[in-house]
């Protein structure tokens, strides 16, 4: 029995976290956040270059197409680290576009797209939602019909400005001959992992603050009302971490309970991310409600992702259908 990340897999996550801490910290996130919502470029060039050079984009691309040939387990490690850093950029869409082409593309389509998606030379997006993440920078959008190129992207305003959205219209679609039916599950797992990263980071920052912040002459973290809420969050987030890891493995390994695992992961991750980021605001007190504080980056990103590819309630209905 080995239900855990290997050292190599953990290393992937620490590399992303270290890069973000040193090169794209919350000040950089803020600069991006405060740029006009319709501005797609901002200050992402360095981050995107790193994503290509450090293999974050190549993670699931087969080695024959210049990728690392790893799986969804490794991809969710990266997703979690990016969520913890509330990092912007079209990483998820590019990885998922590559996944669609890997799973269902012809040899020619794979040769044409995968090496470029793996380095970041080409940007991908997943067009399963009305508002497409980074539709404005994407070279190719994967839709249920296939690969969409030559489209027009119109930016869409959104209060989660850690991510840019666009409405995509026109263009031409090239069918994918194979079976990409697991793509939505893969997308859901990566969103769940991002949410788990957000939730854990929000809790860590809140715990750190409440150890220091004093009221009534003592740290507010010594009050049981706060302790119990934070303890419950720790338990819930730990469970969501297990659930995201298991779902990634279940999808990759084609386990019988993969559908259930994905819905469990998304339902749990959505719930704990909303709860943890709301707690981050509440247990910072008034400062947590300000624009100046970073709590709203986490809260707003959690809001959007909690709704993406099915809310917690929608996934619970799937769980009910699978088990009743």
């Amino acid at each position: 029995m080995f239900f855990a990340l290997t050292e190599d897999q953990q290393e992937f996550g620490s590399a992303v976290r270290t890069y973000l801490a040193e090169r794209f910290d919350l000040d950089a996130v803020r600069a991006y956040f405060e740029a006009p919502a319709t501005n797609d470029a901002g200050n992402l060039d360095g981050l995107w270059k790193a994503a290509g050079e450090q293999g974050w984009l190549a993670v699931t691309v087969p080695e024959e197409h210049d990728g690392l040939g790893l799986g969804l387990v490794e991809a969710q490690v990266i997703a979690r680290a990016l969520g913890a850093g509330v990092a912007p950029g079209p990483w998820r869409g590019t990885v998922l576009a590559a996944e669609a082409i890997r799973l269902a593309g012809s040899a020619e389509q794979q040769a044409r797209w995968l090496p470029r998606l793996a380095t970041g030379e080409a940007v991908g997006a997943l067009g399963y939602s009305r508002s497409v993440e980074y539709g404005q920078t994407a070279d190719v959008v994967v839709t249920p019909e296939g690969l969409l190129t030559g489209f027009t992207a119109t930016p869409v305003g959104s209060y989660d400005r850690t991510t840019r959205l666009a409405r995509v219209e026109g263009g031409s679609t090239e069918a994918l001959p194979g079976d990409a039916s697991s793509l939505e599950a893969r997308a859901t797992v990566l969103v769940a992992a991002d949410l788990v990263g957000i939730a854990r980071e929000a809790l860590t920052r809140t715990v750190d603050y409440d150890k220091e912040r004093e009221q009534f002459g003592v740290p507010v973290g010594s009050f049981q009302a706060i302790k119990h809420a934070l303890a419950d969050l720790h338990v819930g987030i730990t469970m969501a971490e297990h659930a995201a890891l298991y779902a990634a493995h279940a999808v990759d390994a084609g386990l019988d309970d993969a559908d259930l695992a994905v819905s469990v992961a998304k339902a749990k991750a959505s719930d704990v991310a909303l709860a943890s980021t709301a707690a981050m605001i509440q247990y910072h007190g008034g400062i947590g409600y300000t624009w100046e504080h970073e709590a709203h980056f986490f809260y707003k990103r959690a809001k959007r992702l909690a709704g993406q590819y099915g809310t917690a309630d929608a996934h619970r209905e799937r769980i009910a259908a699978l088990t009743l």
């Binding site: 239900f3 469990v264 749990k268 619970r316 009743l324």
Partner: peptide, 21 residues
């Protein structure tokens, strides 16, 4: 009822994964 049962099942599945951990 479906939502409540699914919520509990989610926690039970998490318990199973936690046990594997």
């Amino acid at each position: 009822i479906r939502g409540k049962l699914a919520r509990v099942l989610t926690e039970l599945e998490c318990l199973r994964l936690h046990a594997m951990h």
